[in-house]
Design a protein around this nucleic acid. Structure first.
Lengths: 119, 119
DNA sequence: TTCTAATTCAACCATACGGTTGAGATAAAA
DNA sequence: TTTTATCTCAACCGTATGGTTGAATTAGAA
């Protein structure tokens, strides 16, 4: 169990909400890459790619090592564990054919308990 | 394996990137809720909460059943499976103490294969 | 029919996002 | 030293986001 704080979850999920950044992470899974290498596959300016990388850093998903004029980026996967756990809670609602029954039961239930003021 | 399309992943992760919407999903895990019930815990207008719910619908995470003037929202967890899988790929990078070794190996590796033009 | 309740819609606002360009900063190469 | 390469920074732009308010829509309740 990792239980990230809400603001960190915000940053992680926000970072993942962009295909460019997701592709960058996939690339980093193969190993360290420079900013230039990370930017190369994309049809955008270096500055734009640099901003994406900063979003990943803000989320704690990338750590940067500066060597001279070159910045090496490495995957930092740990915060993903928290996001994974958060989503994992819902696995019960999509796994197996029980989910159909579950769904039906929850629907019934909400009819009976509608407006019971629970939090 | 679920493999959501990029645009759906965008929408799902974007939807999850907001604490208000995450809390709404947690609430919906207990059962169906009306728009009003979903909005109630939050210090914002109904209209604002309504927009959040629409973001969840766009991501396919909520389905709505209209009965008279009341809109009932229900959790639709399936798209979360795709997001869960996507993140799950990185589990190898955070699980167990192997991750430290892995990280070291990948760093070495990237020194040797730097600029090999892989995609 | 008239009142009230549950929601959305439309217009608006401030701020964030994702992109651009051009100008630094810094370090390696000539 | 001068040139070139790697990146960030700053300013700007259009569009999206997250919020507001007030009016419109629709349907139970009196």
């Amino acid at each position: 169990m990792v239980e990230l704080e809400a603001p960190q979850l915000d940053a992680v999920f926000h970072a993942l909400g962009d295909a460019t950044r997701r592709r960058m992470l996939r690339r980093l899974a193969e190993g360290e890459r420079t900013v230039g290498e990370l930017a190369e596959p994309f049809d955008m300016s270096l500055a734009a790619a640099s901003k994406h990388i900063k979003a990943l850093e803000r989320a704690g998903l990338v750590r940067r090592r500066i060597a001279g004029r070159t910045h090496y980026c490495a995957l930092e996967a740990r915060p993903l564990a928290g996001a994974h756990d958060w989503i994992g809670f819902y696995e019960q609602f999509w796994t197996s054919r029980l989910d159909i029954l579950e769904g039906l039961l929850r629907r019934e239930d909400s009819q009976k308990t509608k407006g019971d003021g629970d939090e």
